[in-house]
Design a protein around this nucleic acid. Structure first.
Lengths: 231, 231
DNA sequence: ATAAAATATTGATATTAATCAACATATACT
DNA sequence: AGTATATGTTGATTAATATCAATATTTTAT
């Protein structure tokens, strides 16, 4: 955990384009008065599964991983999030418990908004509820895709999916440095670390990707798409 | 598909206790004017994945299965729903496409409500949006549980989960007749039909359950819970 | 009631992926 | 810089599960 600061105002924050679009200046001011910025160091836990969901977090800078702590200390990495992501979770309006953990992959700057204020604004402006509904549904669709990926594809298909996910949705580049460890990649694809490493090596040997340590370069995108599709 | 009828009114429908609680009589009347009842025969498809999401469906009578059509004709059964369930889906407010298919397991009576009317009422009464938000989040929590069940448990743990799910959440009885085929049970647990049958037989041989055709009786609930927990 | 079709069951075999163990490389700590 | 610790890599082995093939049972249609 770390220092408290107030560097910006909601009115000038680009997240205003996100679920907070459509809020009036007054509503944004309420938001502004009920938020606080927090910095986390790489590796620190932001939200711990099982604890009370009292705040949602906006990522202002840096990358985090969102993961379910499953059985026998095994994690399932649900997604990676970075700047402009807003992290709530399905505990909202249900039991107000975090149903996943969130950990900083890099140093991150965040903005915490308490759920009571959020609820207050939600009651003032129905756009907020609808925007959150939409955001949740987008996540729901992605979860369906993940269900199929994880339960119906073999390891190479799952690794191909993970590489395309990182390239297309996280880094927007075919060449990138990932803060994910090999274990994280294994947790993202629901396989053992050793198996993940082996598949990555296969892809490397087949010249589909290049990798040294944590730097990945996708050489043959089509091959990955094909491997992903065939399962 | 089947006949059109109007048997009841929203004001007297027990679903008014569900996401529609808190609606005014006027709002219920709008709902009532924009709904129609439809009967489906066992086996018929109510919603087909990929088609336009124009209506949500309420189940008035009977049982349905909700499943994702995945790769190579393999389905993943997400849940079973029966009386008083309301089926929307994550396409709502996103792309207005069905992201799963829904098929009748028995003859079913349903009530279809078009999404425009739903949206109209949502804008009149924020309770509706919040109720839907909550319902979606409950489903989200269940999906997280399913992720862990399907990706981190062995076959016997998954079958134990399925049996407990059917007994506790669908039939509310330790002895029940299921309309699910063996293939459906396999789709629910993400394994081959043959494997599902084998595990069921193991449970039967161990006197944990009794089964003849589609009639299941759970004899040793504790054993199932233990098998489910250990993964 | 009987034939045909669909669904269920069982055993043998092949495939996939996890685990275990050894070792290598990188990172953090005085 | 040098040791300790964590992370990554590789190969051998074991365990889990799918597939294939044969047969049985149930359901549906005539």
């Amino acid at each position: 955990m770390a220092k408290y600061s107030r560097k910006m105002a909601c009115t000038t924050c680009c997240l205003t384009q996100s679920i907070f679009r459509g809020l009036s200046p007054e509503q944004l001011e309420i938001l502004n008065e009920n938020r606080h910025e927090v910095e986390f160091n790489a590796g620190e836990i932001m939200f711990k599964q099982g604890t009370a969901l009292t705040h949602i977090a906006c990522i202002l800078q840096g990358m985090v991983k969102i993961y379910i702590e499953g059985l026998n200390k095994k994690n399932l990495l649900i997604k990676v999030a970075r700047e402009n992501a807003i992290i709530g979770g399905p505990g909202m309006y249900v039991d107000f418990i975090h149903h996943f953990s969130v950990a900083a992959l890099t140093d991150v700057q965040t903005c915490f908004i308490d759920v009571n204020s959020l609820e207050k604004i939600m009651k003032m402006n129905q756009n907020l509820a609808l925007n959150i509904l939409k955001k949740n549904n987008i996540q729901g669709i992605q979860n369906f895709k993940k269900f199929i990926n994880l339960t119906q594809k073999h390891m190479s298909g799952r690794i191909a999916d993970a590489l395309l996910y990182l390239a297309d949705e996280i880094h927007n580049a075919t060449s990138f440095e990932t803060p994910l460890s090999r274990q994280d990649i294994a947790d993202l694809t629901s396989m053992s670390k050793e198996s993940a490493i082996r598949i990555l090596k296969e892809f490397k040997d087949a010249r589909i990707i290049e990798l040294s340590n944590n730097h990945f370069t996708i050489h043959d995108r089509e091959a990955l798409v094909k491997i992903s599709d065939k399962g």
